[in-house]
Design a protein around this nucleic acid. Structure first.
Lengths: 214, 214
DNA sequence: AATCAATCACCCAATTTGGGTGATTAAAGG
DNA sequence: CCTTTAATCACCCAAATTGGGTGATTGATT
């Protein structure tokens, strides 16, 4: 492990976790690592934010279900004030919405709690070195979220049109972009509505996104 | 490693890579693993597809830059025909667009070519066990793609309106959804356009997406 | 021969959109 | 306390957009 990336300084770590057994367990695991310095541990976000300016953490381990402010809002608040603090979520939840909410809020990593002790240490090194530590199934969820269902009932051209519609473009600008007449675009959209059995742009886009066609 | 997950069968692997040194290197590394069976290696997609029905691979290692059909289109075609085949991209490119194009096309993993030999073996086990093997910086790119810039000049309400606009909704339906008058939505949108210095829905959405506000 | 994809035309009316110019109320900040 | 901002609503106006109808032609695929 190359020390220079730390600027010769220790990695300052805070833990926010309401279960004190887990909290102290994590603390003991991390304290043993010579490049790490566990500055403070907290059982809720409120206490954590009270000391944030003094703690100056480089990495925060954050639980999601917490008394008072939840972890997602905690992440949002940290990132709003100090965008460079790295946050790793450590939680039991593998629920789609929570995972993506956490990542959207600014989490740089996401681990589920059934982890071997070394995984926690590795994750902190990983995130400091520009990685994004994730549990196996979280990584798959994240990658799967990019995947598109290619079996839509729409033709290639219709997919193009729908995709441009989803960008908020008007029929005329879509026509310009595809070098065809506005009437052609109107026909495509009529056909799209007929195939999808919808009667408006919003309904077509909602269905297309739900079915992961776009 | 639990063997039962393989149903007692070997993992059938194909390699598509135009550099014959790398291609044979990968083959030799993987052939040594007892659960693996390297069925065939190809220097281009066309040859690969010719034998796809006979090879019946479970995992394909796919390069991106290839003579003839490129790797992205190759992935699209594989996934269209056999959605359950797992594909790991192995390439020198860390370019944003290529990474996301590959994942959108259906890649289940993405490795850059400067990898230790064990990483390749691990990646195949990982993807078979429901993971998504990625190089460090790729994982970060992927996670970062979820992150939103919270410092938009728009107010909370304006962000709500813009976000509903991005779903293709009309002023009236946005008004209904937010339980306010259509005129209020119109005022919000006028203010959004003024703040963003744009004069249309498409321009506002383009800017908001570029700046990662939505 | 039949189907589908992609293109274009013309009719119609309601809705939407973008812009202007106001106003009121409540909350937040200096 | 004063100012600014956010959020709400009103009314005027004209151009553009949208959704629906009913056609047609061409070329490819089956």
């Amino acid at each position: 492990m190359n020390l220079q990336i730390f600027d010769g300084k220790l990695i300052r770590i805070c833990i926010v976790e309401d279960d004190h057994v887990i909290r102290n367990g994590f603390k003991e695991i991390l304290q043993e690592v010579k490049h790490f310095q566990v500055i403070n541990t907290y059982s809720n976000c409120e206490d954590f934010f009270m000391n944030l300016e003094f703690d100056k953490p480089g990495v925060v381990l954050m639980d999601i279900e917490l008394p008072g402010m939840n972890g997602i809002d905690g992440i949002l608040l940290i990132k709003k004030k100090y965008p460079r603090i790295q946050i790793i979520v450590v939680t039991v939840y593998e629920n789609d919405k929570l995972v993506f909410d956490a990542l959207c809020a600014g989490a740089g990593g996401y681990l589920t709690k059934n982890l071997p002790t070394d995984r926690l240490k590795d994750a902190i090194f990983e995130i400091i070195h520009g990685g994004a530590p994730m549990s196996t199934c979280i990584a798959r969820m994240v990658v799967a979220s990019f995947q598109r269902n290619q079996n839509s009932p729409l033709s290639k051209r219709e997919m193009e049109v729908l995709s441009l519609l989803s960008k908020g473009k008007s029929y005329s600008s879509i026509a310009d972009e595809l070098y065809v007449d506005k009437e052609t675009i109107r026909t495509h959209i009529k056909n799209i509505y007929f195939k999808l059995e919808v009667h408006s742009k919003a309904d077509a886009l909602e269905l297309a996104k739900k079915e992961r066609w776009i």
